[in-house]
């Protein structure tokens, strides 16, 4: 056996039988007889993909703007609300300590103040 495995592998390459002129000519003629594949034109599959994607996008857009969701409420329903919170402005109070000094504090105003 050879001491160089890769050289042995190289030497063992099967002889490539040259193609005959007839086979060559036949291969060429058979090839050019085929209809070229027009890769520029979008295929039917691509058209279908585009249509399905557009329909899905439209459905999602419409569904996203429907409030309340379709089928879950009638037009007369009043949306539920939580407890009412009234925010009032702060008012300044002037208070007097027992020693007679006056100081001010800020307190939320009440509904009665307004």
């Amino acid at each position: 056996m050879s001491t160089d495995p890769l050289a042995a592998l190289r030497a063992a390459a099967p002889e490539a039988v040259a193609a005959t002129a007839a086979a060559r000519a036949s291969a060429y003629a058979a090839a050019v007889a085929l209809p070229p594949l027009d890769t520029a034109a979008p295929s039917l599959r691509r058209w279908w993909t585009g249509v399905v994607a557009a329909v899905c996008a439209a459905v999602l857009a419409v569904a996203g703007t429907a409030v309340p969701a379709v089928g879950q409420a009638s037009p007369g329903d009043v949306p539920a609300v939580g407890p009412v919170q009234v925010f009032t402005p702060l008012r300044t109070l002037s208070l007097t300590r027992p020693d007679g000094t006056v100081y001010t504090v800020e307190a939320p105003s009440t509904l009665e103040d307004s």
Binding site: A23, Y28, A30, A31, L37, T39
Partner: peptide, 14 residues
């Protein structure tokens, strides 16, 4: 080889 060349002709633009 003939089949390969046929495919090459059909997809030459690619």
């Amino acid at each position: 080889a003939a089949t390969t060349m046929g495919i090459a002709w059909r997809r030459l633009d690619a």
